[in-house]
Amino acid sequence: MDSKFPGKVLPYIFLLPTIIVCGMFIYYPAAMTFRASMYQSLFFGAREKFVGFQNFTRLFTSPDYLRSLRITIFFAILVVAIGLSLSFMIAVLLNRKLRAAKALRISLVWPYALSPAVAGTIWLFLFNPHSGLVNYFLDTVANIKPDWFSNPKLALTMLVVTAVWNNFGYNLVFFLAGLQNISDSFVEAAEVDGAGFWVQLRHIIIPLISPTTFFLLVININYAFFDTVGMVDVMTKGGPANATNLLIYQLYKDGFQNFNSGLAAAQSLILFLFVVGLTLVQFRTTGRMVHYGG
């Protein structure tokens, strides 16, 4: 049976709404960003001058920018690795038949309802070196009161904790859904065969949940690269001495504070290509290990 679409024009008419929306909100801005990256500009293009690739050469020869790049990669690795493993472990524990499972789930998921800026504000209070709960606790237990804002390593630690906490609920929901989709028959069969908890985890649960893990990996990398700008702004403003100046925050500062949209456009292109590249590599490598269906 050969079911062909009638006419040559009709399919395009059906596609038109999507094309218009994508064109207006994705392709046109992307093209404008590409154009803007070739210009020195002020006040959102009110004044501009063509400079070719100067914005890019500037960025790649700037020690500050390269340092931000390294910090961002390090930050992303930490956020993704800690975030995913922690939420996976908790999800496995929560997936058992617990009495307070529902209440626990809700209380663990709610941080996701907060925007990164709000999460930043909350942790800012907790990490306050002089009146925050974290230091109060550390002072009582270990008699130390670290200055989370003035030490580069501590400041980055603080951001990682906040970012992991903020995105924890999201990861948990997906892991829980993934775990509940694993048919009981596999687990029961394994139990009959005498497989213990760790063996089940390694040979059944982790392979079967790999599509979810893979999806979360991509989402979390995007989160670490793009969604953390509000958090940084609230908590450290990129300091101390640029130690937490993530790429996206530098972009925000150049674009929306220094009126330098050309440089910001170049940065957003770099960031875009970087994340696209990373995602493609993941599909090529990690993606092969993923089992769909089962």
């Binding site: 003035s150 101390p240 001495a241 640029n242 500062k253 504070q257 220094n258 330098n260």
Partner: peptide
């Protein structure tokens, strides 16, 4: 770009602290 100047000088003092 006064705000950028402020940022850079604030960064400078943070470097001194470091």
């Amino acid at each position: 770009r006064f705000q950028e100047v402020r940022d850079i000088l604030e960064e400078a003092f943070q470097k001194v602290m470091g």
